[in-house]
Every structure is written in C-alpha cells, then in structure tokens.
Amino acid sequence: MKPAPRPRRQTNGQIFAIPALLGVLSIIGLVSALVGDGVWDGVSWVTLAIPILLCEYFFLRRS
C-alpha cells in the first residue's frame, strides 16, 4: 500500500472559503424571517438548517 500523499498546506483563502459562504448564508437566514413571512420564513429555515445538516453529515456518516 502506498502511503497517502502529504496534503498540501492550504492558504487562508482555501481554509475560509466554505466558512465564509456559510457565514453569508447564516446572515441571509437570520435576516430573511425578519423581513417577511411565508417564503421569507422558508428561506430562513433552509439556510439556517445548513450548518445542522453539515454537522450531521460529517459526524454521523459511516465511512
């Protein structure tokens, strides 16, 4: 078996790309339900559920 190649050092840009996107989505979710009802609430539920689903995906998946 070949040893796994040493992972490349990531730049800050690479490290924070996904977290930054998640941050923006959280802001959208937090503000959305304030602005209106109906669809606006729905946007809020979906965007704020993303962090929860990510935790579930990464911690509970069987690999």
Binding site: R6, P7, R8, R9, Q10, I15, A17, I18, P19, L22, G23, S26, I27, L30, I50, P51, L54, C55, Y57, F58, F59, S63
Partner: peptide, 30 residues
C-alpha cells in the same frame, strides 16, 4: 493540512473532539 469537514473518527478522543470543536464551531460561527 486538513480538508474542511475533517473528522478523524478513528483517532484518540482528544483528536476527535478537536475536530468536533473546530467543525461545529466554524459552521455555527455567524
């Protein structure tokens, strides 16, 4: 040197919990 979402499930508890702390902390940050 770790990909986003890394969870080293087969490692010692201290490593696993570091990964849990890092990942859940960063996705909930905002």
């Amino acid at each position: 040197k770790l990909k986003f979402g890394t969870y080293r499930r087969d490692r010692l508890r201290v490593v696993r919990w570091l990964d849990i702390h890092n990942l859940s902390g960063i996705v909930l940050v905002m």
